[in-house]
């Protein structure tokens, strides 16, 4: 692995954190201003009684909005834009939803098992109309488990970068180049965890999240395929084109 000085690692953590805060979509202060307001029962029922395809469209739009912030985050990671275009696309196609799921813990109220969605905090029951309760439950479970790690913004930022720079994605053309970037980011992750006086198992706990994330993303793709089989025209005409590019 590359030998990197502590000063360099500090700088790397700093730049990744800055990029993360610049592209995080919602600042913590903004969320605090919402006073963690949950949807009223009437509002929950309104979401629940939406036609399935409309709720899918709404969620696809929200995911697509979030993706655009992740793309901007990736562009600001040192070395990412120096990768070949094919690999930039491969890494974002495979990693953007993983980063969105990690970022979700910033918008998550563990006490009420709810996530910031469409202006207020929504429990899993808000998403019932999607018809994929198992996946929604798993997503909420994941958010809870991420929140319980109590990662700082720095740690979230570097972990997000680490996920994006996964050198084991299929179809990478310059795998060694990505590996080098990932190794440096992993060192930065170890560095920030040590600096924040985390216990030794912290890095391993984060590594164990990687397989959970991949499983969730696979299930999302499969669930979308199943929905598309039933509503091909809805997906074709009403889903955001970027969403279809990445997940279709």
């Amino acid at each position: 692995s590359p030998s990197v000085s502590t000063a360099e690692l500090d700088h790397l953590v700093q730049t990744i954190s800055k990029s993360h805060l610049e592209t995080c979509q919602y600042l913590t202060e903004e969320l605090q201003q919402t006073s963690w307001q949950s949807f009223l029962q009437a509002e929950v029922e309104s979401y629940q009684s939406k036609p399935r395809e409309l709720m899918w469209q709404l969620c696809a739009v929200k995911i697509t909005e979030a993706v655009q912030y992740v793309v901007e985050f990736a562009k600001r990671i040192d070395g990412f834009m120096e990768l070949c275009q094919n690999d930039q696309i491969v890494l974002l196609k495979a990693g953007s939803l993983e980063v969105i799921l990690v970022r979700m813990c910033r918008l998550f109220d563990s006490q009420n098992n709810s996530v910031y969605f469409d202006g207020k905090f929504a429990g899993p029951d808000v998403f019932r109309a999607l018809g994929c309760d198992d996946l929604i439950t798993s997503v909420f479970d994941f958010a809870n488990s991420m929140c319980s790690l109590r990662l700082s913004e720095d740690e979230l930022a570097v972990f997000s970068a680490f996920l994006l720079l996964s050198a084991d994605r299929s179809w990478l053309q310059e795998k060694l180049k990505v590996e080098k970037l990932q190794q440096k980011t992993q060192l930065a992750l170890q560095h920030v965890l040590q600096k924040n006086r985390r216990e030794d198992g912290a890095l391993n706990k984060l590594r164990s999240k990687v397989s959970a994330l991949r499983s969730l993303c696979t299930r999302h793709t499969e669930t979308l395929s199943a929905f598309r089989a039933v509503h091909p025209d809805v997906v074709r005409t009403h889903f955001p084109p970027l969403y279809k590019e990445l997940f279709g």
């Binding site: 562009k75 094919n86 696309i89 196609k93 084109p241 970027l242």
Partner: peptide
């Protein structure tokens, strides 16, 4: 690139 025109475009655009 051909299959990911929008993503490619976002990557090409200057920082927003």
């Amino acid at each position: 690139k051909d299959k990911h025109k929008i993503l490619h475009q976002l990557l090409q655009n200057s920082t927003s």
